[in-house]
């Protein structure tokens, strides 16, 4: 994949790690509204990438392009290329349902299904044909352990998922996604609706998970981006009504200490100051 090496966007460091997702010249439309334009970047495997930027700058929209979640919204259109492990995500013969199993997603609002904790975690594996109880038991336990929730819920697995606290619910949702063994985990502001102690737990969890999963997180919280991510992408819509662009993409340490673009610097110092 030579094209991954000559990425046209500014500020991208030479690819020193394995690239998981490659995006080239992506444009996105909601009906007549042109939401994103000219997005190109390489997301490294087994790392945490943070998407930052002001509200309404298309971070979440871009995130949903990566697992074709936007397909569910009528009237949307994607142009450009998204490659997952070198394979075109929007190519013919790609089943979005299968893609979403490989590219899991965590939402801002914890969204356990109205069923038991066990059934929540077993939901994905059951969809994909796992029927044997012992096998499901193992998957449920392993997934809850990986999500650091097992100790808290191991005796109440038959209780409703909605009886848990907000932070526990979010970790249950993470366990539920991990149960289908995704390669990539998309997190859309996963901490903005939960309490600070739980935020800490989820940030710790991300650090543990990145050894096996590629994580992309959208966050409004600069400090959080600085704490958890290896690389950061800064999105900006410069004028109302115009499409948003990817201004700068690079190592988090560099973006936060010596951004190359004046707009990135203004945003970051504005937020910190």
């Amino acid at each position: 994949m030579s094209e991954a090496l000559d990425c046209p966007s500014p500020g991208v460091p030479s690819a020193d790690g394995e690239v998981k997702i490659t995006v080239r010249d992506l444009d996105f439309h909601y009906g007549d509204f042109h939401a994103l334009t000219g997005i190109s970047c390489d997301i490294k495997a087994r790392s945490v990438t943070a998407f930052i930027g002001p509200s309404g700058c298309g971070k979440s929209t871009f995130l949903r392009c990566l697992n074709r979640m936007n397909d569910l919204i009528p009237g949307t259109r994607v142009d450009g290329t998204v490659l997952l492990d070198g394979q075109d995500v929007y190519g013919p013969g790609v089943d979005p349902v299968d893609l979403r199993r490989r590219v899991g997603m965590i939402f801002q609002q914890p969204n356990p299904f109205p069923m038991s904790i066990y059934d929540n975690v077993a939901y994905g594996p059951r969809l994909h044909g796992v029927k044997k109880r012992s096998e499901l038991d193992d998957i449920v336990r392993m997934s809850l352990e990986r999500a650091n929730l097992w100790k808290e819920v191991k005796d109440i697995l038959d209780r409703g998922g909605l009886t848990l606290s907000g932070g526990q619910q979010q970790r249950l949702c993470i366990a539920r996604v991990l149960a289908v063994q995704p390669d990539v985990l998309l997190m859309d502001e996963p901490c903005s609706a939960i309490d600070p102690t739980s935020v800490q737990k989820i940030e710790d969890l991300m650090a543990e998970l990145k050894s096996s999963v590629t994580i992309i997180i959208v966050t409004h919280n600069m400090q959080q981006a600085a704490r958890v991510s290896d690389e950061t992408a800064f999105f900006l819509q410069e004028q109302a009504g115009e499409p948003a662009i990817l201004v700068e993409f690079g190592r988090t340490a560099e973006i936060f200490t010596s951004p190359k673009d004046k707009r990135t610097e203004d945003y970051i110092t504005g937020r910190f100051g």
Binding site: N67, F107, F113
Partner: peptide, 18 residues
Amino acid sequence: VPKYIRWGSYGLGASKWQ
């Protein structure tokens, strides 16, 4: 039924009917 609950299901690779 909230939209985000459906999204959770689609996000796990469920089809519409599932």
